[in-house]
Amino acid sequence: MEASVLIFGLVNSATLMLVALGFSLIFGLSGVANLAHGGIYLFSGYVTWMLMNYLGVPFLLAVPLTIIIAGVLGALIYWVALKRVRGLHLSEVIATFAVGVAILELFRWMGFVTYEFTLPVFIKGSVDIAGVSIDYQRLLIIGIGLLLAFALWVFSRYTKMGLALRGMAQDEYTALSIGIDSDWAAALSMALGSAIAAIAAISILPLGIISINMGYEVLIMALAVSVVGGLESITGLVVASIILGFAKTITGTYFDPKWMEVIYLFALVLVLAIKPSGLFGKFKELEERV
């Protein structure tokens, strides 16, 4: 039982991390709380399915194509819906939420409500680890989650582009004064975050079938992980994913699985009440101290 908790706790942690990475990245690099994240995640799943089933594109080609399309969609959302309200945080939240709902409900309206939408796994089969059988796809999710988190940490700290984007998030006017284009930075971060949402979708959705409501659930997961960890902190994101992932598995194994999905909301409320900046967040930390 303990080995099972350890292994599936890790899987759940990595799943949460993957789901939240794109959301956290966009906020960390541009300060935009992208509530269209769930919509983009689901859009990516359906686009991959459509490329494969309507156009006959092989899975291995559909994957990079979807990631690029999702990236372009992210940048487009910025140029069409966000640019005019840039800096008005409440308007940004309303605009991205509206776009997310529009994407999800558009698919519902188009009839994507049946049960045939599923994506193939990267590698079929399973392996026994410490007496627990686990499929390769879940192991891949752990690997992809860790790899992406590391890559983003390096990108945002050790590349010129990443530093420029972080600079913009920290102080837009100072960044502008040294020649960083605010719109370019925000659009790029939206594109990157959306591409990461696509990677998450392509990795996680093959575990089951794609359904519209997942878009809303993914948004709640991403919000919970990002708020608990600290909105712009990748370290916080990793730690929060591990806490929530294991909390979820332990709840299901030793208590009652029906509480597994409540864990996110409970953690969200708890952190907002005690430390609104999150475990590792710097955002508003000064105000909290004062």
Partner: peptide, 10 residues
Amino acid sequence: YATGASDFSA
């Protein structure tokens, strides 16, 4: 399991 649950390993 709550509607939307996606891990049944427990």
